[in-house]
Write a protein that binds this DNA or RNA. Structure first.
Length: 780
DNA sequence: CAGTGAGCGAGCTTCCGCTTGACTT
């Protein structure tokens, strides 16, 4: 029997806090929200002033009843969820659902998990802040209205099962627009001119770049000709001190970015690894938008820096958030004990911990001091100059520990080290001049991490949703993460050496991308549709603007239902109107032209199963009219860029190749790539062949190979049960029974299994949960 | 796991944020 029950959001937090509070306190966790709008229906009563209908989800029922019974037993209940909008709402839902009484319920908050902070919180309880709760209700209801009214419009106008929402739709927009920028980008060429000079000592080389890029080959040639006879003299030496400051401690988004750049983790990987470190007590909470470090952390960081590096390297710093809509309920992400050098079980955990620790320490360290030297070399009779810049570290400061990585590696291209000692007015000998054609670079495609950074800048999404949002837009097939091969590009290099000018044509591969985010056809069509009819929702400032209204609700200046009412009155009529629009063309349809063979028009559009080409008009009312034919686009093709010829070629498939054993062989391309069909069986066409050209001989060969493979697949069957078989698969032997597959324990020899043993394995295998989300497809 | 899509009409899909498991490949 406990006198006090404290409820926090996270079980790991509960464990830590229980230690601080002693015997009279029991600490439990709510595991986040315990109540929400019903996911299955709209759950907002528009007629009744937007009254939300909340339910306790089934997987939370057991937890809620446990909390209820503990709350009943306790003399005092302390609601200790986070101090932000969502946290306040969690406390309020707990209060309502657990049937708590005002006289023995207290609301407490703390921003850091330290004994002093928690004891202080207990000393200074307050009541639930209903305004803040209402701000959360407004947020929740708005998101539900947008999501559940917009998505059905897409089902009707574009394709079933699609989705739209305040966060995901803008995320897709960012990626679509970036892809369009890339396609419309025209690179400009200019010559970068670099000279090597020999200093008066006769050996030392000074490398310097012309202070201007030359547009044409003619300009380059005339400069090089001039250089043949010109004299070169140092006409300026400038030294400038430069300071660099450390980056702030990690928040969720900066951790995701750095772990991606330095360790190559995806954002969801980073979060999973961080979660492990958090649960083991090595780091503070990993979903945060705050740069703040607790006094305790500041103190221990200081001690650690002083003892490791000395006083000169320490500097007290406090960081303030710049991101829109930050709620700062937690600390920055930091080690629980900064003096712990090494933590974590796996190599991945260790690396992430090290990164967090170094970033935390560096954030409390002195500036790095550098000296930047600029040497300028004049060309006789010319106003252009060659310039060399070098940077040397005078005092390393925080760089001793940590250096933040850049997204674009070429940004740091011109980092030169120490320049040789030179004297003013010294005359230099020219050794060589190289002019290389360089091109302006197209904008980069987003990585997961750079997308998160952009979302955070726009104030869209929260630390807990960055990783899931990136997953959602990929699950909906609006966006794919993938590779793009680069293109070969020629460039000219012109050199002057020993009085001779030589020109050469070289080539390089440019624009190759790995693991970058790109829009699909569906993503593009949905985005264009939403941009046309719902530009306000897709506006990059939409979230920031409604956040201001949520803030006024929290400040008690506005009633949440009237904020929602204002929005709904504008939004809902557009939904109605858009639904009613009858367009001649399907959304996203593009006419490519006329097929010269048949004279029929060719279109591309989004069909029920994705991008499809259509040949021939459709006349739904005329039963006699010839039906159009359809062909799916290939994976690498796009509605936006496909040409008429490419589309016409799609209709060459399925192609009848010939007969084998008196049955037709047909080649086509399906969901899993090119295949042959023969006698009701399917054979994959390997990469060396094309379904458009494969010969009858090769096809027969493939079919025969497949048959041999099939024979080897079979290991054993049983008289007792014809549906039970032991087979050889991609991952080794397995048991097949009534359309399900079962794993055979490692130590067993598959051939020796008896009927009884097989049935036992089947019985012992736990029922598969229906995790495959989209298998419940109906047959058309 | 499979090569579909102009129609006979059922019922389904969907949002964002707060939290962890318990699943499988």
């Amino acid at each position: 029997m406990h006198k006090n029950l404290v409820i926090v959001e996270s079980p790991a937090k509960a464990k830590t806090i229980e230690k601080f509070l002693g015997k009279d306190f029991k600490v439990m966790s709510s595991y986040g929200h315990i109540r929400d709008l019903n996911p299955k229906d709209f759950s907002i009563d528009i007629e009744n002033n937007y009254l939300p209908k909340y339910i306790v989800p089934t997987d939370k029922k057991k937890l809620v009843s446990e909390l209820k019974s503990e709350a009943k037993k306790a003399e005092q209940v302390w609601l200790a969820s986070d101090e932000d909008r969502e946290g306040e709402a969690i406390s309020w839902h707990l209060y309502e659902v657990l049937g708590l009484k005002p006289e023995n319920t207290k609301r407490i908050v703390f921003h850091e998990i330290t004994k002093t902070a928690i004891l202080h919180a207990i000393e200074t309880p307050r009541e639930i802040n209903q305004n803040l709760v209402d701000a959360q209700q407004a947020r929740r209801v708005l998101d539900r209205i947008v999501g559940f009214e917009l998505s059905p419009v897409l089902w009707r106008k574009v394709k079933p099962s699609l989705s739209a929402g305040r966060v995901q739709s803008v995320t897709v927009r960012l990626i679509v627009e970036r892809e369009r920028e890339i396609h419309s980008f025209v690179s400009e060429a200019a010559y970068r001119v670099i000279a090597n000079f020999i200093l008066p000592d006769g050996t030392t080389v000074l490398k310097a770049e012309l202070n201007k890029r030359l547009k044409t080959k003619e300009e380059v040639i005339s400069l090089l000709n001039l250089c043949k006879t010109a004299s070169f003299q140092i006409d300026d030496i400038a030294k400038k001190p430069v300071k660099k400051s450390p980056a702030a401690p990690f928040t969720t988004s900066t951790l995701q970015q750095e772990a991606s750049r330095k360790l190559g983790y995806s954002v969801s990987q980073t979060m999973m690894i961080a979660q492990k470190l958090y649960e083991s007590g090595f780091i503070t909470y990993m979903r945060t938008d705050s740069f703040n470090l607790s006094d305790l952390a500041l103190g221990t960081s200081k001690e650690e820096i002083l003892s490791l590096y000395g006083e000169k390297y320490y500097k007290f710093r406090q960081y303030h958030t710049k991101s829109k809509g930050a709620q700062e309920a937690h600390e920055a992400i930091r080690p629980t004990y900064v003096n712990k050098v090494d933590a974590g079980g796996t190599a991945q955990e260790k690396k992430l911990y090290e990164l967090i620790r170094k970033r935390t320490l560096a954030s409390q360290m002195a500036d790095a001091e550098l000296e930047r030297t600029t040497i300028s070399v004049g060309i006789s009779g010319q106003k252009e100059k060659f310039v060399a810049t070098g940077e040397v570290i005078v005092f390393d400061g925080f760089l001793q520990v940590y250096r933040e990585s850049l997204d674009d590696e070429s940004e740091k291209e011109q980092e030169n080290g120490l320049l040789p000692a030179v004297e003013m007015n010294a005359v230099l000998n020219l050794d060589e001049v190289k002019a290389t054609e360089r091109f302006t670079q197209r904008p980069p495609r987003y990585t997961e991490a750079s997308l998160v950074r952009r979302l955070e800048e726009l104030g869209i999404g929260r630390p807990s949703t960055y990783a899931p949002t990136i997953q959602t837009v990929q699950n909906r097939q609006y966006v794919v993460k993938g590779d793009k091969p680069g293109e070969e590009r020629n460039y000219t290099a012109i050199a002057l050496k020993k009085g001779k000018i030589t020109e050469s044509l070289k080539s390089e591969i440019v624009g190759a991308d790995r693991n970058k985010l790109m829009p699909t056809d569906i993503g593009i069509v949905v985005n264009d549709f939403l941009m046309e009819y719902f530009p306000n929702i897709l506006d990059y400032n939409f979230t920031a603007n409604v956040e201001k209204e949520f803030d006024s609700i929290a400040d008690g200046e506005m009633i949440w239902t009237s904020v929602i009412d204002n929005f709904y009155k504008l939004f809902h009529p557009i939904v109605e109107a858009t639904t009613a629009i009858k367009t001649e063309h399907k959304v996203g349809e593009r006419a490519l032209g006329i097929d010269p063979k048949s004279g029929k028009p060719v279109f591309v559009k989004i069909g029920r199963f994705g991008p499809v080409a259509q040949m021939g008009q459709s006349f739904p009312d005329d039963k006699e009219a010839p039906k159009p034919s359809f062909a799916s686009l290939l994976k690498e093709q796009s509605i936006e860029t496909i040409t008429l010829d490419e589309a016409i070629k799609l209709f060459d498939l399925p192609r009848t190749i010939g007969e084998f054993e008196e049955k037709e062989i047909v080649a086509a391309i399906g969901r899993f790539g090119p295949f042959l069909r023969h006698d009701g069986k399917f054979v994959t066409i390997p990469k060396e062949f094309s379904p458009y050209t494969i010969s009858l001989e090769d096809s027969v060969e493939l079919i025969k190979n497949k048959r041999i493979q099939e024979e080897q697949r079979f290991i054993k069957s049983f008289e007792e049960e014809p549906e039970l078989q032991i087979l050889n698969g991609r991952f080794g032997a397995y048991i097949a029974y009534k359309k399900s597959n079962y794993k055979i324990p490692k130590e067993t020899e598959p051939i020796s299994l008896t009927f009884e043993q097989c049935m036992k394995i089947i019985e012992d295998t736990p029922e598969k949960k229906t995790t495959k989300k989209r298998t419940t497809r109906k047959k058309a």
